[in-house]
Write a protein that binds this DNA or RNA. Structure first.
Lengths: 169, 169
DNA sequence: CGATATTTGATATGATCCATAACAATTATC
DNA sequence: GATAATTGTTATGGATCATATCAAATATCG
């Protein structure tokens, strides 16, 4: 339930007093690191998640929770296994997530009549309302930031490349 | 020390038998999710790390360990705090990482003579040798894959955009 | 039909990663 | 020279991720 990371720009953190005095200490050379796909990907991902959490602070939604709500809205009537596995969440770990969302009355489990083993997932009215507000926040505060930073065309290209990596790498 | 994730393509995982019979069950609609920056970023990052681990299986190096070796090589004579904070690793968590690398004789801590509190970090000869081999593996097996997938120009553009996000988001 | 296997949601549990507080030794500051 | 700050370290808790296992329900197959 962490929502905000106080964190500091990694590089600036350690640089302290004695830089000017000693002369040997300055910002470290990242070298080849700054060209390593994995390194820069991970760093970008952390920043984006951090920003997402800030934008969603009023709704207290994590990226994972948001993705669940989105997927349930788009695919009502699916069971836990289907939703979880589509998101790459293992079933055991999905239980607590749902307990949380259900306790906040954002979604509900309904025993399926066809298959009484499975729980159909649906958004509650409040869940729908919250999701609508969440989408607005994401669009105006979060994703808008990408356009400011990269421009609309680049934003599209970036998402396309990341999707390609996610699917075909 | 996990090295390989057996994992399965998330979407395909749940789809089972009764699809054809029932007719209602098919692949779920990702909807807006596939355009969510955070979602696609995270997914891509997982895939890339997974591939990295596979490529490095023979050397048993994680992305984090590789980044430490790279940074120490490029900045010899720095202490733990400097290396760790540059990588966004908290000092307490860096201790175990170094214990590991040192136990494998890849790098060494040396008490600084200027400041007897701090440990200067250096690569051992074996550490240098391993890093050289690691770089080759990364270049030929890992990063090469990106070129195959996106083309060289796009690869460069992607890294540039991710860097921008990591630094300015 | 009935025995066996499979699936679903759930629990328990462990590994790994991330973050904070506190400590001894050393150094900086005033 | 007293006090504050820094370095590496330990201890610890939370979050995330993965595996094994279970009971209930369903599917499969002889």
């Amino acid at each position: 339930m962490t929502v905000l990371k106080t964190s500091e720009k990694p590089a600036e953190a350690a640089r302290g007093r004695k830089d000017a005095a000693e002369g040997s200490s300055e910002a470290l050379q990242l070298g080849e690191l700054s060209e390593q796909l994995g390194y820069v990907l991970k760093r970008a991902q952390l920043k984006v998640f951090e920003n997402f959490l800030r934008c969603m602070a009023s709704l207290q939604l994590t990226p994972a929770q948001f993705s669940v709500l989105l997927l349930v809205e788009k695919n009502p009537g699916r069971n836990q296994t289907e939703i979880a596995s589509t998101l790459g969440i293992l079933r055991p770990n999905f239980v607590a997530m749902l307990d949380n969302l259900e306790s906040r009355d954002l979604c509900a489990r309904i025993r399926s009549t066809n298959d009484r083993r499975s729980h159909i997932l649906v958004l509650t009215d409040q869940g729908k309302a919250v999701l609508t507000r969440a989408k607005k926040l994401v669009a105006t505060k979060h994703e808008a930031r990408l356009n400011d930073l990269l421009g609309s065309a680049n934003r599209t290209a970036l998402i396309a490349m990341l999707s390609k990596i996610a699917n075909e790498f």
